[in-house]
């Protein structure tokens, strides 16, 4: 009897451990990935081409307006400064060719001069991406529905201006305290600008934009900074953590 009991007790730990380990592995390695779906950006926008090949600055598209607000994503108006396809002319050409202006594939296939002659890219792959932008957005006068990796909900007011002066080198002193907020790799090579603190690291060198990882329950981005992270940094920097510092 005693023997049997002992063996049972011993055997009782094993299933527990199996169950424990199984869900631990599942919970750390598998499940988190299932919470996110990958959504591609509207078209393949290459930072690398614009920055490295064309020598554009970050501020060419991402700048502060005169009122101190931040123009995060470029608008058609900005893009059209270089991508000089005239929407009116293009639409006229499309009408002349008898194509439905909402049939993008037909427009692309028609290889209209007014579009083709104004494409700036060299390689075919890049040209295709540029053509896609021009046809789907620029000539339609529709703004690109960029997906914001750092998406924040409407109740958050984030001021880029207030964070403009944050210096990565200075923050490096708090590297350990901030380890759960900021990827420590950021502190290894602090650049002139502090964008890497919160934004995708070295996005300016990126050629194919990574997919936007959307949480299937909350709808937020995987990179959405949660409130506790904001609060941690604010506390460390001696900044207020009152509700209305960031909420609206």
């Amino acid at each position: 009897m005693e023997e049997r009991r002992a063996s049972k007790r011993c055997g009782g730990v094993l299933p527990f451990i199996i169950g424990f380990l199984a869900t631990c592995v599942l919970g750390w390695a598998v499940l988190p990935g299932l919470f996110y779906e990958e959504i591609e950006q509207p078209f393949k926008f290459s930072h690398a081409i614009h920055v490295e090949s064309e020598g554009m600055d970050c501020e060419s598209c991402h700048y502060f307006r005169d009122d101190g607000s931040y123009a995060g994503f470029p608008t058609n108006e900005g893009c059209a400064e270089c991508h000089a396809v005239d929407p009116e002319e293009a639409m006229e050409a499309i009408a002349e060719a008898g194509i439905d202006p909402s049939d993008y594939n037909a427009i692309i296939a028609a290889e209209l001069e007014v579009i083709e002659d104004n494409l700036l890219s060299g390689e075919d792959e890049n040209k295709a991406a540029e053509r896609e932008y021009v046809v789907k957005y620029l000539i339609q006068s529709t703004e690109v529905p960029w997906l914001n990796y750092q998406y924040q909900p409407d109740n958050v007011y984030f001021s880029h201006k207030a964070h403009e002066g944050l210096d990565i080198a200075e923050l490096a002193e708090m590297k350990n305290e901030l380890s759960s907020v900021v990827d420590s790799a950021v502190f290894d090579e602090p650049g002139e600008q502090n964008c890497n603190l919160c934004h995708m690291k070295d996005i300016d060198k990126n050629d194919t934009p990574p997919a936007f990882e959307r949480n299937i329950i909350s709808g937020y981005s995987k990179m959405t900074m949660k409130m506790w992270k904001c609060e941690r940094c604010h506390a460390l920097k001696g900044q207020p953590n009152a509700c209305y510092t960031c909420h609206k």
Binding site: D66, D67, G68, S69, Y157, K161, E164, Y244
Partner: peptide
């Protein structure tokens, strides 16, 4: 209140 935040951004700018 968000006009306050806007005004602060304007001042910083």
């Amino acid at each position: 209140h968000s006009r306050y935040l806007d005004a602060k951004d304007q001042a910083r700018q």
